[in-house]
């Protein structure tokens, strides 16, 4: 079965009189690592809140497999895994308890959750930490737990909002690499939002968001060629007038 597509059409979102997103059109490439690059305040988190239905869609349309997510919200939520910028783990519970809670909220049995959790934690190198309290884990490990959790219900789309923010370079690269492996091995569609230029490769389908507007969208290399830029960093600087953040 092919991965359903995700299309964002003419989406505008306002906080009072302030426009956070303006006529945003984005189509994610199914089964690929899609990079959403934008400086702080670009509107990435607002876009995530709309995609995860934490915010109501004010204007525009979001289609999943051709169906409006407003019409089929539960179907959409069951197909989507999310890692938020902010920690969403319960620090006082163990890794496994956090995973069990999430799995149960997706209608999975305890036995099924434990089997899947073991598999995901092993893949992420955390199997021996499953009974540790999350509070005892470092930032990189917590992020891995969040990724393991987001995969428990076998989503077809994975959204990661600044998943590597606040981590050291090695942890950041490890997490970025692990998510890229997911795309390659499981055919997941990934939307990786970041403001760190080094996390984006020229071969990635890339969306550049700035001040609530999509400035460019396409394969990174093609965008660089269009703008006569030597790198994603130069492209980003050329389009946004800001330098972004190096790793």
């Amino acid at each position: 079965m092919s991965t359903p597509s995700l299309e964002i059409k003419s989406v505008t979102h306002r906080y009072g009189s302030r426009v956070a997103l303006e006529s945003v059109d984005i189509t994610l490439q199914p089964g690929q690592f899609n990079a959403l690059l934008g400086p702080n305040g670009a509107g990435k988190s607002t876009l995530f809140a709309l995609l995860t239905r934490l915010f109501k869609l004010q204007q525009g349309e979001i289609l999943f497999g051709g169906l409006s997510i407003n019409r089929e919200p539960r179907l959409f939520l069951s197909h989507m895994g999310v890692v938020f910028q902010q920690n969403t783990l319960d620090l006082d519970l163990t890794v496994l308890q956090n995973l069990e809670y999430h799995g149960a909220l997706h209608g999975l049995s305890t036995r099924e959750i434990r089997a899947r959790a073991e598999q995901e934690l092993e893949w992420l190198g955390l199997k021996d930490r499953s009974h540790d309290r999350v509070r005892a884990l470092n930032g990189g490990h917590r992020r891995r737990v969040e990724i393991a959790r987001s995969l428990l219900h076998r989503p077809s789309i994975l959204l990661l909002d600044e998943a590597s923010a606040g981590l050291d370079v090695a942890s950041r690269q490890a997490i970025n690499g692990a998510v890229r492996d997911l795309c390659a091995q499981r055919g997941l569609t990934v939307l990786w939002a970041t403001h760190i230029l080094e996390e984006v490769k020229t071969s990635d389908p890339t969306i550049i968001l700035h001040k609530g507007k999509v400035l460019a969208q396409g394969i990174g290399q093609a965008l660089c060629d269009d703008q006569n830029a030597q790198s994603i960093g130069e492209l980003f600087e050329h389009l946004t007038g800001t330098t972004g953040q190096a790793a």
Partner: peptide, 17 residues
Amino acid sequence: YDREMGSMKVLLMSPIP
């Protein structure tokens, strides 16, 4: 507390009503 700490989002992202 869950809302402030962010863990409420796990509940809100559930496909269960």
